[in-house]
């Protein structure tokens, strides 16, 4: 069982944080009830990490209030630190120490006896699926193993509120499941979890509530289902053989899905949020009637980009940054 926490477990209001030339947070408000898993969804540089750092007593806000279990993060920092666990974006374990030594050290720092700390470390090593690697130095761990060790380190003290800053960023998508399973078990014990992520899928899998932030402001909030209803559960991509027919195609698709599709004039790709797979045949029939040739047609889960296009009208990542990333891959 996690520690007791009064309601609301996390309370943020009017939070502003400025760095020398940028405003990282421009007035953010949200709350999380004890036991909730709150997903903070946004692209790089949207203010997710800054929010977590303020709540975890690592950074000071310029304006606004941040409370954890009713305690103000600056005035009652010492009490807040007794209640929270933090898993940073970059694994914050000692890579020269073994997994077991890392966890024992943190247990000791939290005031456990040597024996208690060792026993707790062994339990969490097992919980994190690291039994075979327990005695090996953390630098020999894979990315996923290190994240799980990091996660274990943040919950040694049965934290009432756990902050997970992009727990699976950089992991092979196929390996995310193990980390997700651990987060779900953590939530099942009653801890309040604030999870930041760039992946809609991750927020959808883990969170009860999602807050979408962009450039330091909240652009949407709701349950995963309500957000998906707003942006469709799937995205339809259509590439025309003849780009001059784009306007006609847009009209026809719009009539069927009752929403305006997004058209990329450069690539001639038309994207539309759809809630119902049934519209596919209707769209194909309608385009066929008008003799509009389609070279490529696909249905996929909406990406963060789609979410942002729908909610804010612009893409999550600036176009050139995105190209750079793709070029690097």
């Amino acid at each position: 069982m996690s520690q007791y926490c009064s309601s609301p477990a996390i309370e943020v209001s009017g939070l502003v944080k400025r760095f020398s030339d940028t405003t990282a947070l421009d007035g953010i408000d949200f709350t999380a009830e004890p036991g909730a898993v709150l997903g903070l969804l946004g692209p790089n540089g949207s203010g997710k990490t800054t929010t977590v750092r303020i709540l975890a007593t690592l950074a000071k806000a310029d304006e606004g209030i941040a409370r954890v279990c009713g305690y103000e993060v600056i005035r009652d920092a010492y009490k807040v630190r007794q209640l929270i666990g933090l898993t940073g974006q970059y694994a914050s374990v000692d890579k020269d120490l073994s997994g077991h030594q890392n966890l024992t050290m943190i247990g000791r720092l939290l005031g456990m006896s040597r024996k208690q700390a060792r026993a707790r470390a062994s339990d969490l090593i097992e919980e994190a699926g690291l039994t075979d690697a327990a005695a090996k130095p953390a630098k020999s761990y894979s990315g996923g193993m290190r994240r799980r060790l990091d996660l274990a380190a943040s919950i040694i003290g049965d934290a009432a509120v756990v902050f997970l800053d992009e727990p699976t960023t950089g992991l092979d998508p196929a390996r995310r499941g193990e980390t997700w399973a651990m987060i779900r078990r953590l939530a099942a014990q009653g801890s309040t979890v604030l999870l930041t992520t760039q992946y809609l899928e991750e927020a959808d899998h883990l969170a009860n509530d999602i807050i979408v932030i962009d450039s330091g402001t909240v652009v949407a909030r709701g349950t995963p289902d309500s957000l998906k209803r707003r942006m469709g559960s799937q995205t339809l991509d259509l590439r025309l053989s003849d780009p001059t027919q784009l306007d006609e195609a847009t009209n026809r698709v719009q009539n069927i899905i009752n929403a305006t599709p997004v058209v990329d004039a450069h690539t001639g790709v038309l994207s539309a949020a759809v809630t119902d797979g049934e519209v596919m045949p209707a769209i194909v029939r309608s385009l066929d009637e008008a003799a509009i040739g389609v070279s490529d047609l696909s249905l996929r889960l909406p990406s963060l980009d789609d979410v942002f296009l729908t909610l804010t009208g612009h893409r999550a990542t600036p176009a050139d940054e995105k190209n750079e990333k793709e070029a690097a891959e």
Binding site: Y78, K79, G111, M112, Q116, L124, E127, D158, R185
Partner: peptide, 24 residues
């Protein structure tokens, strides 16, 4: 997972760090 080994609802939060704890 084992039972809680740290303060729960029953043990109030500490207000200060004792010298002994600083040494440990």
């Amino acid at each position: 997972m084992t039972a809680a080994t740290l303060p729960t609802a029953h043990t109030p939060l500490r207000k200060h760090i004792g010298l002994g704890q600083v040494l440990v």
